[in-house]
């Protein structure tokens, strides 16, 4: 009888999966921290122009968005450019209310830091954009950002 007895069965040892939840949790936390929830459902075409001299919008909590562009459903809403605030189409006159609403949400000290991001489709004509800008001037929301995509230098 040999001293080194071989086992009869010798299957591969199962890979331990007990650390799988840890790995998944790690990924989960990464996405939870970096995630930004989609703000709105776009009802308009929103293909912003490209630019090079751009700055990053800091502190998203202090940004209100105004979308302008042709409706995606042109049969229903026509093909002239419309404004979208939150989840619905709006008229120029409603912009002021939208800004006031945002102001009431934030701390009073942060009101001067509020920025309005204009996400405008590049095919839009300037008329409607100017109207919105005039409306913003009326409510003293003077800090604006023309949202653009980054163009890589040629």
């Amino acid at each position: 009888m040999s001293k080194f007895k071989k086992d009869g069965k010798k299957g591969l040892p199962a890979v331990s999966t007990s650390s799988l939840p840890d790995i998944v949790f790690m990924l989960l936390f990464f996405f939870m921290v970096t995630t930004v929830m989609r703000e709105v459902d776009l009802k308009i075409k929103n293909d912003t122009p490209e630019a090079t001299e751009i700055e990053k919008l800091e502190n998203k909590a202090l940004v209100s968005y105004i979308y302008i562009g042709e409706p995606q459903d042109a049969k229903k809403f026509g093909s002239s450019a419309r404004i979208q605030l939150n989840d619905a189409f709006a008229e120029v006159a409603e912009v002021a209310g939208h800004i006031e609403e945002k102001r009431s949400e934030v701390n009073e000290a942060e009101i001067p830091l509020l920025t309005t991001s204009l996400k405008v489709d590049q095919k839009t004509e300037m008329g409607i954009v100017t109207d919105v800008k005039q409306e913003l001037r009326k409510v003293q929301a003077l800090k604006i950002s023309y949202s653009t995509r980054e163009r890589l230098a040629q």
Binding site: F31, T34, T35, V36, M37, R38, A51, E53, I54, E55, K56, L57, K60, V63, T115, S117, L118, K133, L136, R137, A141, L142, K143, I144, S145, Y146, S147, T148, R149, E150
Partner: peptide, 15 residues
């Protein structure tokens, strides 16, 4: 639900 793109733009101050 995540959107990784951050928002860039031309910053301006209206008069």
């Amino acid at each position: 639900t995540t959107t990784m793109d951050s928002d860039f733009g031309l910053m301006r101050k209206l008069p």
